[in-house]
Simulated assay, not measured.
Amino acid sequence: MLRALSVTEARVPTKPLRRLRFRPSLAISLAAAAGIAASLALGAWQLGRAHEKEAMAARLESLSEEPAIALPVAEVSAEEVLWRRVSVRGRFEPRYAIFLDNQVRDGVAGYHVIMPLAISGGERYVLVNRGWIAGARERARLPSVRTPAGPVELSGLAVVPSQRFLELSTRVAEGQVWQNLTLERYRRAVPIALQPVLIQQQSPLDDGLTREWSPPDFGVNTHYAYAFQWFALALAILVFYLFAHVRRAA
């Protein structure tokens, strides 16, 4: 008769376990540490910028809700009134008006009407973005803008036109139609004394223009996205570094 196999005799032979070995070179370790540190620092910097922009947006929202301050005839510094509601009295000067091109609203192409206002009591002007108007069917014909002949009182937000734009052509202005606006460019084109800000008109006026202004975009979400990318890169460097240098010992 066949005898029964004992547990010891029936045991399946197994391979001895191998221990893991971690022996990276000094140069690679230093490079990985530098990459991780730099990525973390850049991610933290982007987070800091996002928090700064959020605080700035909150500050500007608070300023815009304060009572309007009167804009004087005497020249002010832009920092005094920037992002604040201002009020002013004067007369529009239509002959120096410009039409800011490529302003699309609800799928309709049009213009922003930029017109200087002669401040009452002096010879200084302030530029006013009076609002949006649809373009005419014929490109060569500008839309008609109703402008009060007498003095007006208006209020709005004091801003400085952005200078962050790309121009692919040297033909940036054709008569009254401009592609982009800066105060310096307007001063060179029109011989009048200007305040260093532009007013986005908010007060109503029977002129047929649309005045709905978007709040400034400070790019907060962009900073958060960049921060996530830098932190993800730091994690990727760490994972790759560990994976590439862990080996099974013989």
Rank of each mutant, 00 (worst) to 15 (best):
L127A: 15
G121D: 13
G122H: 08
R130D: 10
S144F: 10
A140T: 04
R141N: 07
T147G: 11
G135N: 05
V128Q: 13
I133D: 04
P143Y: 01
G121A: 07
R141I: 03
G122K: 04
V145E: 02
S120V: 13
R139I: 01
R139E: 08
V145S: 01
G121Q: 09
N129A: 08
R130M: 11
S144P: 00
V126Q: 04
I119V: 10
R146F: 08
S144R: 13
G121C: 10
A140Q: 10
A136N: 11
I119T: 09
L142V: 00
L127W: 11
A134T: 06
R139A: 09
R124F: 10
G121L: 09
A140R: 03
G122Q: 09
G122F: 12
Y125N: 08
E123D: 14
R141P: 01
R124E: 05
L127Q: 13
A118T: 04
V128C: 14
Y125I: 10
G131L: 11
R141E: 07
W132P: 01
L127T: 11
I133C: 11
R130G: 08
W132K: 09
V145D: 01
V128A: 15
S120H: 05
E138N: 13
P143S: 08
G121P: 11
E138L: 11
G131T: 09
E138M: 05
R146T: 15
L127N: 03
P143D: 12
W132C: 02
W132L: 06
G121M: 09
T147A: 07
R141F: 02
R141W: 01
